[in-house]
């Protein structure tokens, strides 16, 4: 029972990490770091909540989250890909803007409610028969739509990246953009398009926290999880399979901290349990020797040099 609980929580908490980290893999493979990931998560969480609350429809919530992601991505992508401004600098600006904007617009829509507004959570969808399996049944086959989507996206991401022409172009844009350019394919368009797509995924990942997990929106709802997804992309070696493994590990850490917090175990101070994912990232970043870094990661493609 305990194991089943942990496993279920792990899969649940790893859902947004999978989606976000996969998005980061796709976009970094084209050579662009999406530093705005934390802010995009937040905008997604906000839009998902607002859409669902106003219309009462979770579907609209999900669509709004995607839209918010697309808009944030368009801003980030335009400045970094077309105007070739520094990615870390631009991303930081958006990450500062996002919480201000989200809170402000929340206020615009809802004024100052006495109690935090709430929406219904995305329902869990049990898969017939499979959800009754012992131990793994509930964890893998009785989750909400986003969790299923996350697994499907990982598989699709792997297939697209390594088995299709689109994937070939994406991988080439980060490994040698000149080759893509020389082939007559517009590098900027490939990068911008992937940024938009990835940010749409980030929006969904953010919405998981507001309408898939908590049912409300607060300023701290993401609390650095976007950065965890960013780190997982790195630690997973820019590969969807690595993302799957990494997300489950971090999901487990998240789940454990929830369990420890609620079970009242006081052996370990709670603060340190919360810090585990971050410490884990630091350790893994240091321990990993060889990385498969896309050769042109973070470098804008400028055609007319000199």
């Amino acid at each position: 029972m305990f194991i089943e609980n942990i496993l279920t929580n792990t899969v649940m908490m790893s859902t947004p990490l999978m989606i976000g980290a996969l998005a980061e893999v796709l976009v970094e493979r084209t050579g662009v770091m999406n530093i705005a990931i934390e802010g995009t998560f937040l905008m997604g969480a906000w839009a998902g909540f607002v859409g669902a609350y106003i219309t009462g429809s979770l579907t609209v919530g999900l669509l709004s989250a995607v839209l918010a992601g697309v808009l944030t991505g368009a801003l980030y992508g335009y400045i970094t890909v077309y105007l070739k401004q520094h990615q870390i600098v631009t991303g930081t600006a958006i990450n500062i803007l996002a919480p201000g904007l989200a809170l402000y617009l929340y206020r615009v829509f809802f004024g100052i409610p006495l109690l935090p507004l709430q929406v219904e959570l995305l329902p869990t969808i049990p898969i017939p028969f499979l959800s009754d399996l012992p131990v793994v049944g509930r964890a893998f086959f009785n989750q909400n739509i986003l969790t299923y989507a996350a697994f499907a996206l990982i598989a699709a991401g792997f297939w697209v990246l390594f088995k299709t022409r689109t994937g070939l172009v994406i991988r080439s844009a980060g490994a040698n953009p000149e080759a893509v350019d020389a082939a007559g394919i517009n590098v900027e368009r490939v990068r911008f398009g992937t940024v938009i797509f990835a940010c749409a995924m980030d929006g969904l990942a953010g919405a998981f926290y507001s309408i898939g997990f908590l049912g409300l929106f607060t300023e701290n709802i993401i609390g650095g999880r976007g950065w965890i997804a960013f780190a997982i992309c790195f630690l997973g070696n820019w590969n969807p399979i690595g993302v799957l493994v990494g997300s489950l590990v971090f999901g487990l850490a998240d789940a454990l901290s929830v369990v420890i917090r609620t079970s009242g175990v006081t052996m370990v101070p709670n603060e340190f349990v919360i810090a585990i994912p971050y410490i884990l990232t630091i350790v893994a970043t240091i321990a990993r020797r060889r990385f498969n870094v896309p050769a042109y990661l973070g470098i804008p493609y400028v055609k007319e040099g000199r």
Binding site: L168, R171, S172, A175, N176, A182, A183, G184, I185, A295
Partner: peptide, 27 residues
């Protein structure tokens, strides 16, 4: 080009296919 526009981590076929751009043989 003087500096080759090849993707070093890809195979020969992958590079040739990439080089087909959006031309008829790209697929």
């Amino acid at each position: 080009h003087q500096h080759f526009t090849l993707v070093p981590v890809h195979t020969v076929v992958e590079n040739v296919l990439l080089g087909a751009g959006k031309g008829p043989k790209a697929r």
